[in-house]
Structures are given as C-alpha cells and as structure tokens.
Amino acid sequence: MSVGTLLENWSEFRHFHPVDDKPHDPYKWAMSIDLDTCTGCNACSVACYAENNIPVVGKEKFQHGQQMHWMRIERYWSEDDREFPDQGAQFLPMMCQQCEAAPCETVCPVGATNHTADGLNSQIYNRCIGSRYCSANCPFKVRYFNWYDYPTVDNVWPAEMTRQLNPDVSVRGKGVMEKCTFCVQRLRAVEVTAKSEGRIVREGEVQTACQQACPSSAISFGNLVDPESRVHKQWAAQQVVLEADEQEKNKEHGTSELRGYRILEELRPYPSVMYLEQVRESAV
C-alpha cells in the first residue's frame, strides 16, 4: 500500500464527467421512459421489489417514510379547477437516474458508490458505513437506507415467500444504503455470456425487471452506444445528448415538437434516463 498505488488508483477512481478520457465502450446502459404511455399501474415497482429482494416494510414503517421502493411512481395532480376524481393525474416513474456526474459519488467518505465502466452508478453494500451523505446530496432522493435489519424483521418476506427471493441479488443488512441498480445482475450475466462468445450484448438480449413488467411498454432500456438499440434511436430522435446540460427541447422554450428531457439537468448530473413528455390529455 504505497502512495504510488494510491495515486494510480486515484486516476482510475475519479475523472471528469461526463467522461471524455474514457469513452463508454462497448456499453453505456441507459433508459427512456414514455410518460405518454405510462398509466401509473405500479407494475414496474412490484417487479422491482420481486427482482431485487427489496424488503416490504409494512404499513407502520411506510407511514414513517421508511419505505424502500427503488422504483416509485410519483403522482402529480393537474392544477385545473376540476375536483377529484375528474381531476387529471400525471404519473412519473422515478428511480436512480444513474447520473454520469453523480452528486452521490463524490461525497461518500469511503468510496462505496462509484461509477462503472458501462455507465452505472454502483453501490457497494459491504463498503458502505451508512453516513447517508449520498442521499443527502442526491437531487432526486432516490436512495434508500436500511433503517432496520430487514432480513431478520418479521413479515418483511413472509415465511412462505422466502423461496421467492432472487438468488442473484444480495439481501441487504441494516445500516447500508441501496438504490436502483438498473438490474445489474442481469446486465453482468449477459455481458459475460456475450464476452465468452466474442461479441457485445445484442439489443433485446437484456431487459430490466421494470421494463419487462410494464404492460404499456413505456420503459425502454439498452445500450446507448449501440446504434441499433431502441434507446439510442429514441435519444437520437429526441436530440437528447448524454453530455449536454440543456437539451434541444428546452432551448426552444415551449415551442418544440420534441418530447425528450432529463430531470434536473441544470444541476449537471448528466442522468442516464430520458423522459418523454406527456402530450395526451391527462388520465382521469
């Protein structure tokens, strides 16, 4: 453990974002979510709970705000004169935006959250000491802390359901931070298979759990640097650029035909999730 090692590792560990010294090659996982087709059914959220062994904290802890939904459906009411139930609602699925210049990464005292070469914002549970600084600095507030030791708490996973836990995903103990991983276990599996076959992952070879569960196909997910991928085509059609801090849609001040935007872009976290603005009349 020398200072030389430190400096060498350091240059690997941190570099300017968005990355120009290290291009995303061959993968940059990204997502796009069409708010026009989202019906707010919560299937994505349920699928996420099942896939990622997320503890179901129960009514009481939920009321204390200690819920763990990596994928949450936010509900915004239209501000018109109509009363509920005629009042329109808009839904927005929100999960970790896998920012390229993630505010959470720089503040972690132990380096438990880092950027991977394929553009994910990773969380190392074993390294996390639970200072919760990452959550404090996350503009989207999509990080969830294990307030209790959920694997030992009653009824988090009822006895008859313990067999449904996903063996590919670790179960988190108390005192660590967790968040959406873009289903990294699935990504790693296909990446390894593809590598062993001497190719890169093909479009459609991998889906995230939320994407798989979405009945209206509002979520698309894939490799942004692969010109054949649906995500790449969607981002390109909307002229949304990963390393830009303002997109075409916003530059045109409301007159644009474009629908693609990223949330809180002005803070320059360079998120990997593009949202497509809702254009239809609000769902009732």
């Binding site: 204390h64 639970g130 307030w147 030791d149």
Partner: peptide
C-alpha cells in the same frame, strides 16, 4: 434495533 427507531426516514 436499527437506525429506524430515531424516526429518520428517506429522504
């Protein structure tokens, strides 16, 4: 018991 008893929450 866990940090939850402090009634901290997300976020």
């Amino acid at each position: 018991v866990g940090m939850g008893v402090a009634n901290l929450n997300n976020p």
